[in-house]
Design a protein around this nucleic acid. Structure first.
Lengths: 221, 221
DNA sequence: ACCCCGCCTTCACAATTTCTGCACATATGT
DNA sequence: ACATATGTGCAGAAATTGTGAAGGCGGGGT
């Protein structure tokens, strides 16, 4: 299946060129000319990668990048006008996966897109997972939320990690159970309810876990 | 002076990507495509840090990791395949300084390399590790804490040194055992419990060692 | 060679933490 | 209002860790 790339830039020319070359390289593309529309498309289209201009009218690319990072782990390639800005980007630890300085050749763009996709494409379980203002660190077995660190039990931790790996996706109790206890584990599915409750209590007053009546649970997203 | 990084992986593309980004980040790099060559380079080049793929032709990455550990204290970052659902502790069983799951982003690699180097950096000449209140002196097999000096046994010392090398990071019993006994010695994992207990008693009344139920132990931090 | 002593390992059992299963109260959707 | 699904409190079950004690092994001294 073709990977979907979202291109966000205020210069129609740039957008068109990027889109054309990415198409030619076998990618599906979606485009936006400003920040707000880009953010909306990122949410509705769930692209596999985003190419984002640093300078945008209406919403700064920097803010947009930060917003996007809060909701998903989608790979982002930043387009920057100057080399100096590049240093800032790295220094700020924006969370972009790569950057390209303008002017750039379309060939280079395609190459970078392929490269980033190859190594960042859908990795559900790295040591650190972020979703919204939750940050989960496997190597420390801790979850940070604004202002404090929460200690979770192993089961609660795996439960949260599973949901955080794909914010917004709905998981059935059976799926959550197998994620926590390994495959084919016969048990009372509603034991999950108890763990969800304990998790919610520890995450208070935040409302992170959403109940989907009749289906299961999901992380807000 | 630029730090020298040795990258060992059988996939030329991976090696190239790592090498490029490390170069861009100001490191000097040396590369090897298989285990034996990697071991030889580690000996002849004496790199400041090694990035090592877990899966290698000719010589398993894990064996190589152990061999390297026997000869020097060079920091090692392991590259591992995607974590299986059932194997939530794969990262803890490696006995390396850190690990990264593939696919990974270049910023993540560079960040981890910097972190590990900073951790291991200190002054190589004085075998002293500090973490919070604790100061550990390898040349004397002693630990200083506020107000007094405690004498430890060899096992207790290595145990504490391992945890102090990365405060806050969790270590499984298996990992602590291999850190203390060199390799993954087949032995009763809960022997670690006894040493932890003895360590705690000697460190009283401080609460330095934290139990993470179902996972292992870690140093506060 | 023999004994003593410190250290590591192992075991059995107690203490503690976490998980599961229920019963019943609430909430949701038709 | 009815049928179904979810939230909650709790107690027993299950799993994990803490602890004290005993045995093994090896080094040093006699």
């Amino acid at each position: 299946m073709a990977k979907k790339i979202l291109v966000i830039d205020d210069e129609p020319k740039i957008v068109e060129i990027c889109s054309d070359y990415l198409h030619a390289a076998g990618f599906e593309t979606v485009t936006a000319g400003d920040g707000p529309r880009g953010l909306a498309l990122a949410r509705s289209q769930q692209p596999d990668l985003i190419v984002l201009d640093l300078m945008l009218p209406g919403m700064d690319g920097l803010d947009l990048c930060r917003s996007l990072r809060h909701e998903s782990n989608v790979p982002i390639i930043m387009l920057t006008a100057r080399i100096e800005e590049t240093d800032k980007l790295i220094g700020l630890e924006l969370g972009a996966d790569d950057y390209i300085t303008k002017p750039f050749s379309p060939r280079e763009l395609v190459m970078r897109v392929r490269t980033v996709l190859r190594r960042a494409g859908g990795d559900p379980s790295s040591a650190v997972i972020r979703a919204g203002d939750l940050t989960l660190d496997r190597s420390r077995y801790e979850v940070d939320l604004p202002g404090r660190t929460v200690v979770l039990t192993a089961t609660e931790f795996e439960l949260l990690a599973t949901m955080m790996s794909q914010p917004g996706r709905i998981f059935s109790r059976a799926q959550l159970l197998s994620a926590v206890r390994g495959v084919a584990f016969e048990s009372y599915e509603r034991a999950i309810d108890s763990h969800i409750r304990n998790l919610r209590r520890k995450l208070e007053p935040g409302e992170y876990i959403v109940t989907v009546h009749g289906i299961g649970y999901k992380l807000e997203g």
